[in-house]
Amino acid sequence: MRNIIFLGILSIFLSLFSSGCFKDSVAAGSKYKIPIVNHDLSYIPYDAKVDQADFVICDSTDFRSGRNGIQYIGGSNKLREDINSNFVSNKKYETFNGYVVIRFLVNCEGKSGRYRTQSLNLDFSPVKAPSDLLTYSTQLIKSLDTWEKHSLNDSRMEFSKFINLKFNNGQIQHILL
């Protein structure tokens, strides 16, 4: 009797177990692109089409990406002020509601380079930005090239940084650092 009760309970739970715990062994759908990156994610590899060949990288395996590793001279509020005051709105941008994300490196010499820019919808899916918004935004960030490393010990360290501009009807609504 004891064994029957035990086996009964066991079979009920195993039936639940087989239907709910493990998913069918199907391959990951191609619906979602799985990014494969063959380098440290903080590093941005050289691209002869867009990058300056003389931008020095001391160690591509030792890039830091923390928010506070490098700072804009004058601080975050000054950076926001400088972006806002230098951004000239354009009628062609008015349809854009989403993000322009600019990534770049600051090398061991303290210089910035390897700029990469991408435009995204508000759900982070890639989208084509209107007109020259991407190049314009990149040039704007490049022009504010005054970065300092957080401490003297960091002087030879290399960093990656990103600035996310959130647009609402073609106007910068938020500068996210």
């Binding site: 994300v101 990534r103 996310n164």
Partner: peptide, 29 residues
């Protein structure tokens, strides 16, 4: 491919570095 935690953990450094499209593709999965 059906082990979800790998996609989640792989997405974290993409998000932290501003690579949102890649990060969201992983977390969507």
């Amino acid at each position: 491919p059906n082990y979800a935690w790998a996609y989640y953990e792989k997405s974290v450094p993409f998000f932290k570095r501003g690579m949102f499209a890649e990060g969201v593709s992983l977390i969507n999965k």
